[in-house]
Nucleic acid binder design. Structure first.
Lengths: 127, 127
DNA sequence: GCTTTATATCGACATAGATGAATGTGAGGG
DNA sequence: CCCTCACATTCATCTATGTCGATATAAAGC
């Protein structure tokens, strides 16, 4: 673990610029993977439905999303693998709800509050 | 404009569940488009570099990102079109900086704070 | 066990998008 | 002017992924 303070090896995604230091290639892949899970119109709308209703079973998603059952299953799988949705099997049905802290972690990763000082530093081109 | 308070027709992306109501298909496409701009390892790292240094010219991005000049140009174009980066041409160089409120708007859109009450509502399947 | 129902998986297809060589554009410098 | 340099654009290639029909799995109910 590096002693630079900001715990880059934790489970949560690294902040975009919370440490005023660019992300490594590996950290970028991790963040991009999570963002990719949300970067689809169907999945965003799916998440918003789950967020609004608290708990939804897969069968209730086909109509509002106007997609086939395999497609819905595909999207819920991706969102669950990204840690955004949590599925619970009750009898024949699977109930989906939001993972408690996933979206908040993502929002924290998108924080750039203490960056963006106009410090030019080194550059190959002189202005 | 609807009088339901939350200004769904404004320029900012609609909140995921701030109104405790699912996103429309059009709103979902808009949000997904913005998220897609960030949902790439190279672009996330690019944004983090700009965030950390405040202002960067394109030529200083090729080395840290290990991509060719056309690829860098491609990514900056996408980020600028998404409103995340702003480019300013100074002489032969293009200087990139973060758009002031783009990422904050995105973070707001991902807010689900006042949703997720366990209200079951109507469902085709009875538990 | 057989049927029904809800969901997952497989397979195939179509489209989107990331990448870079080649080339175009446009601003300086000589 | 011509050359150089920074960046944009075009074009082609390759991979990733959204979509759904067909099929598998698995849980109830009879």
């Amino acid at each position: 673990m590096s002693a630079t303070g900001s715990e880059r090896t934790s489970g949560r995604p690294a902040p975009l610029a919370g440490a005023a230091q660019p992300l490594s290639a590996i950290e970028a892949v991790t963040l991009a993977t999570t963002l990719s899970a949300l970067a689809d119109p169907v999945r965003i709308q799916l998440v918003s439905i789950v967020a609004a209703r608290g708990s939804v079973c897969s069968c209730d998603l086909e109509s509002p999303l106007a997609k086939s059952q395999p497609t819905i299953s595909h999207h819920t799988t991706i969102l669950a693998r990204a840690g955004i949705l949590v599925g619970e099997k009750r009898g024949r049905w699977t109930w989906w709800r939001l993972a408690p802290e996933a979206l908040n972690d993502l929002r924290r990763a998108l924080d750039v509050s203490d960056a963006a000082e106009p410090a030019h530093e080194s550059s190959t081109c002189e202005d």
